[in-house]
Nucleic acid binder design. Sequence first.
DNA 1: AGCGATTAAATCGCGCGCGATATAAATTGG
DNA 2: CCAATTTATATCGCGCGCGATTTAATCGCT
Lengths: 147, 147
Amino acid sequence: MKHELKLDTFLCFALYTANHAMNRVYKPLLEALDITYPQFLVLVTLWEEDEQTVGSIGEKLFLESSTLTPILKRLEAAGYIRRERNRHDERQVIIRLTDQGRAQKAKAEAIPGHIVTATGCSSDEVQRLRQEISDLRDALNEKSHAA
Amino acid sequence: MKHELKLDTFLCFALYTANHAMNRVYKPLLEALDITYPQFLVLVTLWEEDEQTVGSIGEKLFLESSTLTPILKRLEAAGYIRRERNRHDERQVIIRLTDQGRAQKAKAEAIPGHIVTATGCSSDEVQRLRQEISDLRDALNEKSHAA
DNA sequence: AGCGATTAAATCGCGCGCGATATAAATTGG
DNA sequence: CCAATTTATATCGCGCGCGATTTAATCGCT
């Protein structure tokens, strides 16, 4: 029995609880923007590249349309984005930032710095760990998609 | 501007997506037990130490009673645990494994090995990363509890 | 041209996860 | 000894996140 069933030895449990902890750090920072954490990730995606389809955003965030559609509707209701069918392919919905949505970016600029501070690590340390966790994600995704 | 607003540089995003990826690897493995991932974590906690209060389990899993109560009710309905008020302090609810709940442990023994395989890393590699992520969680929790 | 297959997004049901609140039991202090 | 406070759990409302299904549009093939 190489691996024993102890919570403290589970990589999954570390990820699970670290993710929750990160959410708790983000919550007060996002209150200024009056958005949730997944809504923030959608806005970041659009600040990087505006005018994307639901599918394109989903691919970048690893989310299904069943998850994204309600989030996008809330961002639309908040006045940060518009949702319009693609004229050239009516199956697609193009997501565009409004002026107000673009304006929120300024309020968000300070967030990454706050997070690095909260980790108690150097920027380089954080980036190294981020890369390792991203690689882990890619390895896990490869296995579950193959199977 | 030291930190730019790019998804690919966010530690939070790496954690968020790695956690989802881990969930997707776990889902088929847990189907044999017919439980969800958080339900599995509760069972692991009880396999380590039976007869715990809701609060004690919550402390170990970093979960509130508002999250745990419904999960525990489902595990009770599945026949894996019993929920009984503490005779000596009727505010508390003691959670106990049933015989069936204890029996599930055997089915779960193989899971950690599957996970290590899915990561494509050595056990030592996984444990090192797990420790780093746990430390990150603790650092983040310290900041958000202090504030 | 036309029809079956594919693709994109939306809808639905369910289980978290949490903040705020409620309920009930135990503790504390006068 | 009893009223105020504290503690433990439960309840409620809301926003994910996903699998399964639906709806609608486009593509592919003959």
